[in-house]
């Protein structure tokens, strides 16, 4: 379970998140919707532990463990995963090297034995096949020259291999055409389970047609201004975010 309590975050002195509280249970798929600049991506980065964000108040807990004093790698080893809106290209680092380093680092942190090369290869091959990722894509440097769809598929592949307890999908639909969106969404849906919570951040209802949420939250000016069930997303699609802008103003 991810539990965010009264979170306040500033970047370079400017307040971005202003008293946000949110709970996502194990097995729950929660969606956060909101207009540009409402602080959605900041929330995902702060949970993942990116530097340059100043948390002035509040707490973030994963299964009761406080994340705020943990490094990003420690958070990952505790079971947190972030699907990046814009996955990074890393020239010179082979995808397989990167995947192996990540999987083994997490195993090491959990005091598990490292994967042997054949075990690792088998896992990657199987997971890649499910996501239509060809072998030659795995031979290239991490995300280098990949299309938007390929990059997102690579994110889902990493999620499948790392088997997180909780994943945040930051605008997973950006840069994707309908076919790529469907493949990625199917990949995510295959990873839904009773133990795994998901937080889906998006502007649009469209993504939620593919990944059906249990709960929907509206974020505006750095806090949750309304929560409800899936019907809330449909309502927003019709009325837009204008009401909330007025309400908050």
């Amino acid at each position: 379970m991810l539990e965010v309590k009264n979170l306040h975050v500033s970047v370079a002195g400017k307040k971005i998140i202003d008293g946000l509280s949110l709970k996502v249970a194990d097995g729950e798929v929660a969606a956060i919707m909101g207009p540009n600049g409402s602080g959605k991506s900041t929330l995902s980065y702060v949970v993942a532990g990116r530097a340059d964000y100043e948390v002035t108040e509040g707490s973030i807990r994963l299964d009761g463990v406080d994340l705020l004093d943990k490094t990003p790698a420690e958070r990952a080893a505790l079971g947190l995963f972030l699907v990046f809106q814009y996955p990074l290209e890393i020239p010179g680092v082979a995808t397989m090297t990167f995947l192996k380093a990540a999987m083994n680092a997490q195993r090491k942190a959990r005091e598990q034995a490292e994967l042997s090369t054949p075990e690792f290869m088998k896992k990657v091959r199987e997971a890649a096949a499910k996501l239509n990722i060809p072998q030659d894509m795995l031979k290239r440097p991490v995300n280098l020259g990949f299309s938007g769809g390929e990059k997102k598929r690579m994110e889902i592949l990493q999620m499948a291999l790392l088997e997180p307890k909780f994943a945040i999908l930051d605008e997973m639909d950006s840069g994707l055409d309908i076919d790529a969106l469907r493949i990625c969404a199917e990949g995510v849906n295959a990873l839904r389970s009773k133990e795994r919570g998901l937080l889906v951040i998006t502007h649009y209802q469209r993504l939620l047609d593919y990944i059906a949420p249990d709960t929907v939250h509206v974020m505006h000016k750095g806090r949750i201004v309304r929560s409800g069930g899936p019907e809330l997303a449909l309502e927003l699609e019709k009325s837009g975010y204008a009401d909330y802008a007025e309400e908050a103003a």
Binding site: G49, A51, P72, A73, L82, F84, A102, M103, A105, Q106
Partner: peptide, 11 residues
Amino acid sequence: VFYMESRGIPR
């Protein structure tokens, strides 16, 4: 660096 850290690779 952050991208790699977020996958569990220590800094």
